[in-house]
């Protein structure tokens, strides 16, 4: 573990990205203090003439300009960034928990249980993710919870496969055999020996999942199935900004896009850094 930390700390790109991500989180937490508008308040004066009155300006208090409805883009971007980060974190956390549990059980129990469980994963993998997401959002309505469930539902499958493969490899290793011979209960073996040894692989994969979750959320927003007003996400803001990019209100696209790209990029490099640090054999 110590080695891993050292290796990670030596990775300059990953450390720089950690710093950037930290700044973004600080921005989300502290930013509202500097905002002169709330994320849902309409600036009735700007509403009629977004192109000039809604442009970014210090004077009007709209640092990032306003959206199509005269709502402050600074406040909305902060709120959206928070949402997108949460979506990434919770979505991949769900994948992590479900996928690990499924994979460990299948891999450790083995035999017919393994067969059935993994066959189910194969079937679910064959269902197009678009369909699963759309159906869940249609059935469950549009809320944060539904969004997390939808994203978690499509992403735990690969995690389960990876964890199962690792568990299979681990379960016949000498130290497990030794523990078993020493009379340690099966549950204990899983918790004491298998799970800690899976940690590296699982964390690496989960960190790579975060940007994927954020990308998927933006696709959902593009289809108009994202979260409800007045809340918003970076994907939703970008989808709106992309629609109006030719109408002289380019800031509506650029500000959210900047934060979006920044988050995705830092996540990529942090994920790569984690992989290099935790899983040196893989290189």
């Amino acid at each position: 573990m110590r080695d891993a930390r050292d290796r990670f700390l030596r990775n300059k790109a990953a450390i720089a990205c950690m710093a950037v991500l930290f700044l973004i989180v600080v921005f989300v937490l502290v930013g509202p203090q500097f905002s002169q508008w709330s994320n849902e308040e309409i600036d009735w004066d700007a509403l009629g003439d977004i192109q000039t009155m809604g442009a970014p300006s210090l004077e009007s208090g709209h640092y990032f300009g306003t959206d199509e409805l005269g709502r402050d883009l600074f406040a909305r971007t902060i709120q959206a960034t928070g949402t997108s980060l949460l979506v990434g974190l919770i979505g991949s956390a769900m994948a992590l928990i479900l996928g690990t549990a499924w994979g460990v059980i299948a891999g450790y129990v083995g035999g017919r249980t393994d067969n059935i469980m993994m066959r189910l994963v194969d079937i679910l993998l064959a269902i197009p993710t678009t369909l699963v997401i759309i159906l869940i959002l249609i059935i469950a309505g549009r809320s944060f919870v539904a969004l997390f469930v939808a994203l978690g539902a499509v992403s735990w499958l690969t995690m389960a496969r990876i964890v199962r493969a690792q568990t299979l490899a681990l379960k016949n290793r000498e130290f497990i055999e030794a523990a078993r011979a020493g009379g340690v209960s099966e549950t204990m073996i899983v918790f004491r020996h298998i799970l800690p040894n899976l940690f590296g692989v699982v964390i690496v994969y989960a960190s790579l999942l975060i940007p994927e979750m954020i990308l998927s959320e933006s696709f959902i927003s593009f289809l108009g199935l994202g979260i409800s007003e007045p809340y918003t996400s970076l994907g939703a803001l970008i989808a709106q900004g992309a629609g109006t990019m030719a109408y002289g209100t380019l800031w509506q696209l650029l500000f959210p896009l900047f934060f979006y790209v920044a988050i995705i990029l830092t996540m990529f490099f942090i994920g790569d850094g984690l992989r290099d640090a935790l899983d040196p054999k893989d290189r």
Binding site: L215, S218, F219, I238, A242, M245, V261
Partner: peptide, 18 residues
Amino acid sequence: GVAAQALPNFIMGPILIL
């Protein structure tokens, strides 16, 4: 490579058409 991957692919549509 990273930029291409980080941009949501649906914004390519309007950009290309414009």
